[in-house]
Structures are given as structure tokens and as C-alpha cells.
């Protein structure tokens, strides 16, 4: 048997103890991280199961209003045109809201199911932005907010500017940002929209001058089902899906979303989206050495 000196033995023992301690420390660190993630996951699941009761108001209230007004109109054949047109406007506003909420909910469901497909085409951005702003005009009017649109895109020989992207996705992103700006910017009286082309990226900026978001909450607002004010005292409409859908949709288009905001200093969302590449679908594999079969 090999003789081992006491010194060597002690050193070896010390080394092994240190190694053990290090491993334990590392394990503890991992355990702590796991605990945090576990908490987050169960929070998220709890929020999800509350979802149905959360969106109850969002879906039920407009629907009840639509049914009520329509019923009134049906049962009364002696209403003057002015009242009819006023009530039709109310039905439209409620149905518009319902449609908008449902679109966002379905978009979230599609993203979570992995069923997002891009439909790339040449899109007239100016028309899309103006049309979306126009469709939100009635809400802005009600909240007494003025939407200022500043679109400056290069014209192509008198033709409207066309950008290769998915028009429905851009609409989803922009309408959610705009709706948020109207909802949370109402302490002031205007919203600034700026659309530019920078380094071949489409940049859409939506700026409101309302309640703003505390720096500490900047990450949180992109989580699903999260609204910073919640519970019975909740002052704002919505289901807390909008911004998580916006963020994920922008990622699909390989763009970025930047948020500048502080409490009580308004919100500035800046979206930057690169032009989509035409898919090289029909590029078949050449029979070079590089190719392999599995």
C-alpha cells in the first residue's frame, strides 16, 4: 500500500471539503432560482384560471348593451331618426370594442398554440395607420383625446409608400398601442403618432401624456393577464393581454419594442419592424457536398 503523508491527507480532505461546499452553494443557488420560477409559474397559472372571470366584464357588458339597445329599437316603431342614429352609434361602439377585445384574445390563443402564420404582402402603411386611427376616433372623442398623426414616408414616384410585411399583424400591434394610449393617456388631451422609415425599418411611435408606468413595472406589463391596477378598484378596461400580444407579434416580425416611461410622465412606445424578406421557398437544395439526408 502506498504511504500517504498526514499533510497530504489533510490537504486532500480540505480540498474535497471545499469542493463539497462549492457544490452545495451552487445547488442552493439553483434551488433558489427554481423556487422563484416555480412561484412565477403558479402565479401565471392562477392568473390564467382567473382569466374567465377577468374577461367577463369585457365581453358581457358590450354584449348586454348591444342586446338591450337592439331590443329597444325592435320593440319601438315610433322612434325618430335622430334617436335611431344615436342608438346605432352606441351599438357600433360596443360591437367595435367587443370585436377589438376578441381579436386580441384570439391572437394570444394563436400565439400560445403555435399557430401564428405570417401573410406577407406589400402594404400601404399610411392608409393602414389612418384607417386604424379613424376607427378609434369615436373612443378618443368620448374621452376627449386628440390623436395627432404625423406620417412621413418616402413616396415612390407619386405612388403611396408600400412596405413588405403582414398588414393584419401591424394592425394588431398598432391598434393595441393606440387603444392603450387612449385608455391610459386620458389625463392629458392628446396622443402623438409618428410613422417614419429609418434604416429601412418601419418605425411607429405612439406617445401619450397620461399616468405613465413606474420603471420597476416595465417588465411586468408584458406578462400575460397583467394589469397594474386590478381587483375591484380597477379603473381601466381590458384583460391584460394586449401588450403581451403586441410584444410577441413584434418578435414574429423580427422587430423591436422600446418603452420609455416614468410614473405620471406618460408613455412612449416605439416599434421598429424590418421589411419582411420574400421567402425563398422555391429555392431547392442543390446537390452540393454540403447537403445531407436524414
Amino acid at each position: 500500500m502506498q504511504h500517504i503523508s498526514d499533510d497530504f491527507l489533510l490537504q486532500e480532505l480540505k480540498r474535497r471539503f471545499e469542493e463539497n461546499n462549492r457544490t452545495i452553494a451552487e445547488l442552493n443557488e439553483v434551488k433558489e432560482k427554481l423556487l422563484i420560477i416555480n412561484q412565477k409559474l403558479s402565479d401565471s397559472e392562477a392568473l390564467k384560471s382567473n382569466f374567465l372571470s377577468n374577461i367577463r366584464n369585457e365581453i358581457n357588458n358590450p354584449l348586454t348593451a348591444i342586446l338591450g339597445i337592439a331590443q329597444y329599437l325592435m320593440g319601438n316603431n315610433k322612434i325618430d331618426t335622430k334617436t335611431v342614429s344615436e342608438m346605432t352609434r352606441m351599438i357600433y361602439a360596443e360591437a367595435f370594442n367587443l370585436d377589438f377585445q376578441l381579436r386580441t384574445i384570439f391572437a394570444a390563443a394563436e400565439i400560445e398554440a403555435g399557430e401564428v402564420y405570417l401573410h406577407i404582402s406589400k402594404v400601404d402603411i399610411t392608409e393602414l395607420i389612418l384607417r386604424t386611427v379613424q376607427s378609434f376616433k369615436h373612443i378618443a372623442l368620448k374621452k376627449q383625446v386628440e390623436i395627432k398623426c404625423d406620417i412621413n414616408l418616402p413616396e415612390q414616384q407619386g405612388q403611396p409608400f408600400l412596405f413588405t410585411t403582414d398588414s393584419e399583424k401591424i394592425h394588431l400591434i398598432f391598434s393595441n398601442l393606440l387603444s392603450n394610449a387612449i385608455e391610459y393617456g386620458q389625463t392629458s388631451d392628446k396622443i402623438d403618432i409618428k410613422v417614419r422609415l429609418q434604416n429601412n425599418n418601419l418605425c411607429i411611435s405612439v406617445k401619450d401624456y397620461g399616468i405613465g408606468i413606474d420603471k420597476a413595472d416595465h417588465e411586468k406589463i408584458f406578462d400575460r393577464f397583467v394589469q397594474l391596477d386590478h381587483g375591484l378598484t380597477k379603473a381601466h378596461q381590458g384583460h391584460g393581454l394586449g401588450l403581451s400580444v403586441v410584444k410577441n407579434t413584434i418578435e414574429f416580425l423580427e422587430g423591436t419594442l422600446t418603452l420609455e416611461s416614468e410614473k405620471n410622465k406618460g408613455c412612449h412606445f416605439l416599434v421598429s419592424i424590418p421589411e419582411a424578406q420574400a421567402l425563398d421557398n422555391d429555392e431547392s437544395f442543390s446537390l452540393d457536398a454540403n447537403e445531407e439526408l436524414f
Partner: peptide
Amino acid sequence: LWNGTGLASPKFGNIAIQKL
């Protein structure tokens, strides 16, 4: 791995493999 932030979308392996 999905860590509970954002949407539980299949951009995360544990969700994408289970869903597939």
C-alpha cells in the same frame, strides 16, 4: 424553458415539444 414571463408560447422548448 418558459419561466412564467410573457405568453406561454411555443418559442420555448418545453412548451413547443409538449404541444407538438
